[in-house]
């Protein structure tokens, strides 16, 4: 048993000859907020895909709350309590905002075809519970007034927040956020930083965050891991990272990272 809620040890994958992720180790305690940074193409999203089971790890292990999850399929990992957002927003664009969140409640429900067709009391109760939960979640993100809107009609910032909201509705233990602040302006970023902190308190979960905005990461994360070319080049608290010569070297000549 490890002391960490999410314990990622030495995971890696290579595509052809390219080692997209090589021996990444990240350990987050309950309530921890961990940053994953690195220049473009450093393998951050690949790491997320490995942890959430979209790709199979070729080495290492992922343990979530004492349960090994690295050989589970993505939906089983989600059920085990690991939820994520996507770098390029992946909402169910034709569905309503409410339905997007209700879908996320799916993995906590029990669904039988017979119940659906006959509308048994259990089925009706569960649908009601899902709606109630979804409204509650939307309320946290002040998206309630948009519940009936199709997800694709939302403004960009709201779509990002809806994605986080949807991820939280799966009742996760660990939340993985892939560049949640991408494309936001400074004031929106500030609000986002606040809500990430708030989420962590309110839902008592650990957060693993990929972000390019150094200010945001340094501001809210307790621990940071820096990747470059699939390898971990530094690991430590924000101030340690800021003074690490290797990190500075990796970022030199990378103007597009801000």
């Amino acid at each position: 048993m490890s002391d960490y809620l999410l314990d990622v040890r030495g995971i890696g994958i290579s595509f052809g000859g390219l080692k997209a992720c090589d021996g990444l180790t990240v350990q987050i305690p309950t309530g921890g907020l961990h940053g994953l940074i690195g220049p473009n193409g450093a393998g951050k999203t690949t790491a997320f895909n490995l942890i959430t089971g979209v790709y199979r790890t070729q080495m290492g292990s992922v343990t979530l709350d004492g349960v090994k999850v690295d050989h589970l399929r993505p939906h089983e990992i989600a059920k085990a309590g690991l939820s994520r957002t996507f770098q390029n927003i992946r909402l169910f664009s034709e569905l309503s905002v409410l339905d997007n969140v209700k879908l996320a409640c799916h993995c906590r429900g029990r669904h039988t075809l017979l119940g659906t067709l006959l509308r048994t009391p259990r089925f009706v109760a569960q649908e009601r519970a899902m709606t109630a939960r979804a409204i509650e979640m939307l309320d946290v993100f002040s998206l309630q007034h948009l519940a009936g809107e199709q997800a694709k009609n939302l403004p960009y910032g709201d779509q990002r927040r809806l994605e986080i909201c949807r991820a939280l509705a799966t009742e996760p233990k660990v939340l993985l956020l892939d560049e949640p602040a991408a494309g936001m302006n400074p004031s929106e970023k500030k609000a986002l930083a606040q809500s990430i902190k708030l989420i962590r308190e309110q839902f008592k979960l650990a957060v693993l965050l990929i972000e390019h905005d150094m200010g945001l990461v340094m501001d809210i994360c307790e621990k940071i891991t820096v990747l470059d070319h699939g390898c971990t080049i530094a690991h430590g608290t924000p101030s340690e990272i800021q003074n690490n010569p290797k990190v500075q070297e990796a970022y030199l000549g990378e103007p597009a990272t801000a």
Partner: peptide
């Protein structure tokens, strides 16, 4: 992909 990540088999 999003559906899988939200726990849909």
């Amino acid at each position: 992909i999003a559906a899988r990540s939200m726990g849909v088999n």
